[in-house]
Design a protein around this nucleic acid. Structure first.
Lengths: 406, 406
DNA sequence: CTTATTTATTTACGTCGCGAAGAAATGTCG
DNA sequence: CGACATTTCTTCGCGACGTAAATAAATAAG
């Protein structure tokens, strides 16, 4: 059916799952057996792939199969030959630009991280040129630290909060920046003559999750990112072919007519749920220092969550409101999108203990004649091994995969 | 790129645009020239297509081209050979099941309607079997009326309000029916041994519009249907590959905490915008007869619109509220989906004079950092020539294509 | 009237993928 | 220990499609 860039899909599956035999590649990609055979032989000739020695059958984590066979391995039949990505083939850099933070990571072709850096910087104080320079400097630092010659650099992925035009690579608007319509991709491309991909951070996380969790790569899955803002990445059959290429601004769906203030107006979901909103509201009754450039630090937010768990009634109420808002976001997503999966992710979900019970509670009321949807809470840091533009480095610990709706 | 069922795409383009030369087919489908050449020669051999005589160049409605050439036609160069669908190849039936109404239409292979019927029937009083029998009887009546032998019937399309599982063809829930989980497709398929496709009505309309308006077939377009309920059909690159195959239940996105009552709870968009909600609210201050089975007739709704235009202040306020709700629906759609196009359609838009000014007014406030979206109001009756499952027959006159958002 | 130009369509050839059948490597059973 | 069974992988033939070049059929220009 779907022809074209199947080489890329093979590489992607291999990067996600580690060494796999051809049979399993065929199953994962949905390609036919001869197609895999041909593709892999060409990829081996080009030194992207290596054949490793034969291996025991249970590659996949199907526990039922493993139990049936016992744990000794070695079924009968011709043993499988494992295929591995050649780590020496080249290197990949991922940059994540967020509020007051630029994270950079360099990985080999197999996806193992070789080095990474976190640069705290007041992003909203930067102009476009300074931002580019900083990013380029960070990338150069990664290259130096790992002694990577320039021609070894295969690609650079940049994840950015806000509205990103995937076609042009321009960031039209970002809460982390005071400037708009920034073209980060072009200067970086020129500086390193490597392929540069820019994406909305939520889209990047959604893609990373879809790559990490095969179930999410089938059908339509929506990943709601809660943190400095509230964004959403949507992935259809493992790809991010989407409206304007930007992540959804689900945070700016309106809840009530007279709600609290967000960045655009009154009553958006973000105004209840985003870090800055929670911190701002908390300051009305707690003695807290003002946030740096309108944005509370991670430590400040951690303190808030701690106190809420500790039983502060005002804070509990705040997080309860936030949970309601999150439920509305999920309900709106289900109503408009009818996705097969909804994933909640991002640093804001570190407070998920406080949020989730409200989400599920509200949802059963909201979802109406909903079809079954699987709602999961995911670690934002998933798949740091992932390829370009797929790292985001947010917090939020993995919790559970629960079911809600009907 | 996209391989596979390109024969179908050729036929579809031809049905939409009428006779076209191969060059134009190649451009419309995005296929290469030799591919079209091969496909069409096979289709001609199978008698689906005919070659018509050569024709003057301006097939497409590009006014600029026409002006440049003058209107005489006959450019220089080899004249194009027009390809036409062979009307004799077979016949297609479209059924639309709506609240208290079953519409049936039979068309030849070219898409010209040969006969149609409207059956007013209290759909909510029917059980599954009776509904099937009625639909089958209507189809038989169409076959009889046009003297169509059974083997001439190529396919049957059924559009149904509510949640339709496209894979199984089951209607899980519909406001027009009191029964749930109805399998209409299977009995009809058995009765006629023809291909039967079921779809959500909004999805069917969205597909029909995308087929009629090439711009809508590129990227992501959302068609919001306002009428007995509020639904949405989403089309990506001309196809309805979507979440659960069902249309979105955009009508059940919540607006406020304490809004009026809809079918599921309080405060949904539908509770302000759907026919039944408007009529119910109008009865609180106007002396109107009760609606049949919770559903006002078209005549009753027409009366309401007339009085609102006539200047009844209470009704004006009602429609103003409805316009606000529609604006919220559009805003939520833009926020969550980020579509390239938003189309408003359906019988409810016959009151668009009252609604639209509020929609655009509210939108400029709502859409925040929105990207440019084209918002159009479309005739629901578009493309009655369209193929199976694409007819819906709602009202709403074509108005304009305006721009909103930023 | 011949030649150039423009446009529509076909032919030739290469690539990619699928299905079927065969080959290789290992187990199991008599 | 040999005849199967089973699983993995490869080879072969076919169909669908893309690119590039050739051919066909008309008009415009000289």
């Amino acid at each position: 059916m779907a022809r074209g860039s199947n080489r890329g899909r093979v590489v992607e599956v291999l990067r996600r799952h580690g060494p796999l035999p051809r049979v399993e590649l065929a199953r994962s990609t949905g390609l036919s057996f001869p197609a895999i055979s041909g593709l892999t032989s060409r990829l081996i000739a080009e030194e992207l792939l290596c054949e490793t020695e034969t291996a025991a059958p249970p590659w996949s984590d199907d526990t039922d199969e493993a139990d049936a066979d016992g744990l000794s391995g070695r079924r009968r039949g011709r043993p499988a030959v494992l295929l591995t990505l050649n780590p020496e083939f080249g290197r990949i850099i991922a940059v994540s630009v967020r509020m007051n933070l630029i994270e950079t990571l360099i990985a080999d072709f197999e996806g193992s991280g070789l080095a990474q850096s976190r640069l705290a910087v007041p992003t909203r104080a930067l102009d476009a040129g300074a931002l580019c320079d900083l990013v380029i400097a960070q990338i150069n630092a990664m290259l130096d630290a790992t002694a990577t010659p320039p021609d070894q650099l295969l690609g650079i992925g940049i994840a950015l909060q806000g509205i990103v035009n995937a076609d042009t690579g321009r960031n039209l608007w970002s809460p982390a920046l005071s400037v708009t319509d920034v073209d980060l991709a072009q200067p970086v491309r020129r500086a390193f003559s490597a392929e540069v991909v820019m994406a909305n951070d939520a889209v990047a996380v959604a893609l990373a999750l879809a790559t990490a969790e095969p179930g999410l790569a089938q059908g339509l899955s929506a990943t709601i990112m809660v943190g400095h803002g509230v964004g959403m990445g949507v992935v259809l059959d493992g790809e991010a072919r989407w409206g304007a290429g930007a992540g959804s601004e689900i945070g700016h769906v309106k809840l009530g007519s007279n709600g609290p203030q967000c960045r655009c107006q009154r009553g958006c979901i973000e105004a209840y749920l985003a870090d800055y909103a929670l911190y701002r509201d908390a300051r009305t009754f707690l003695d807290l220092p003002p946030a740096d450039s309108q944005q509370p630090s991670e430590a400040q937010m951690a303190l808030l969550r701690e106190r809420a768990l500790g039983g502060d009634p005002h804070l509990e109420y705040l997080f309860q409101q936030a949970g309601r808002a999150l439920a509305e976001a999920v309900a709106a997503t289900i109503s408009v999108l009818r996705p097969h999966h909804v994933v909640l992710a991002g640093p804001g979900l570190q407070a998920s203990h406080c949020l989730i019970k409200n989400v599920t509670g509200e949802l059963t009321v909201r979802s109406g004649a909903a079809i079954p949807n699987r709602i999961g809470v995911a670690d934002g840091r998933t798949d740091q091994r992932g390829c370009a533009a797929r790292d985001h480095g947010g917090g939020g610990r993995p919790l559970s995969i629960s079911r809600a709706g009907r």
